[in-house]
Design a protein around this nucleic acid. Sequence first.
DNA 1: GTGGTCTAGACCACT
DNA 2: GTGGTCTAGACCACC
Lengths: 122, 122, 122, 122
Amino acid sequence: MQWNLKGDRPIYQQLVELITMQIVSGMLQAGDKMMPVRELANEAGVNPNTMQRALAELERQGLLYSSRTTGRYVTEDAALIMRVRESLAEEQITDFLARMEQLGYDKEKTIFMIERVSREGN
Amino acid sequence: MQWNLKGDRPIYQQLVELITMQIVSGMLQAGDKMMPVRELANEAGVNPNTMQRALAELERQGLLYSSRTTGRYVTEDAALIMRVRESLAEEQITDFLARMEQLGYDKEKTIFMIERVSREGN
Amino acid sequence: MQWNLKGDRPIYQQLVELITMQIVSGMLQAGDKMMPVRELANEAGVNPNTMQRALAELERQGLLYSSRTTGRYVTEDAALIMRVRESLAEEQITDFLARMEQLGYDKEKTIFMIERVSREGN
Amino acid sequence: MQWNLKGDRPIYQQLVELITMQIVSGMLQAGDKMMPVRELANEAGVNPNTMQRALAELERQGLLYSSRTTGRYVTEDAALIMRVRESLAEEQITDFLARMEQLGYDKEKTIFMIERVSREGN
DNA sequence: GTGGTCTAGACCACT
DNA sequence: GTGGTCTAGACCACC
């Protein structure tokens, strides 16, 4: 796993986003057992406290839950994962449309370009 | 003019991108006279040499040209500006599609979402 | 290494040409490690930034590449080096033919003279 | 007449070379009357003394002569002009061959390249 | 210790 | 007064 962490934003925040991506993209499946905090922290090259903070935030969002004795798991609420996935997608789309509009492309031109680019990209 | 410069990437590179955006978005029109280097540098809050470097790069790309004594101008090659605009748009699209794919959206689903989001955004 | 720098043209430009010559003439072989910037600058008697600028330009042309921490190297693309060599040779020839024509020698007379001069030079 | 004078070598020397070129290239014909020193100096944007020095040198070489009363003339010795022309051509050729050799081209390859370049240049 | 970047301040040519 | 160049010296990321 590549944990490409930049120094321009809080680390824990980047960890939240990366783990969220792992969950919504299916890399981590609903119900999967997470690795121990210390191991995750070690793999990511961050302080265990920082990783702990990220996991706590994800628990607050409901994407993870922990049972004190057996460890920490990805939520089994597939609908929640789906909602988060859609929410992230909408965010991507909103940002994207804004950037394209700044370049002078309205929705129709943008969709036309997408068709063209993805045709070429084959 | 807002010169929102971050500390995570070379400043001259951000300057190149910002000025490119001003040109392709029409804020700076083909043939327009640029402000003097020192003035631009002052406005952006950077060293004149840094601004100089950015402008030199844009000159290399053909988006600007300078006559030694009278100042610096936006190219009059509207076709070049258009090409750069399209190239930037394609880059945006490629990146966007990659991010959407990571979220599990293929081209069709993505376009469907765009339609939905932009309908809601009205 | 002799760095005969004149004051009539930008130093960084002369550095570019000199190093290019070292590469195309084989003094620097494909894949060779370059000396550190600061050392080169010192040897040439110029400011490190000036040498840096020259090397950056050569990197842009693809004749050099650098890995952040281990140093800077001559490209391993022998074909590129060959292309540059041919391009320089063509430039020499074009200039030469122009000068000879100004002296009233067309291509045939010029070649005849070359034969004569190089016979005498033996 | 363009008197492109650089600041890196003695002006009078550059004047000598430029006027020599005018004579051997036929721009100034054998026997032609030269313009008055002051006029030449004015046209070239140099001090009359500097032009005077250049003309004196050309007289020393025999390419010009002056009759105190009627002015200064190009020599009528066509053979001398021819000899100077050949001498300049040989110099060009020697320099050229040296530069080509540094690029790794021997006489044969050089002549081959000349044929190729002048064919393309049509 | 390496390359990369940035700042500050100077000088030059051109006109 | 413009752009272009150069120097000196500093800091940073990376390994």
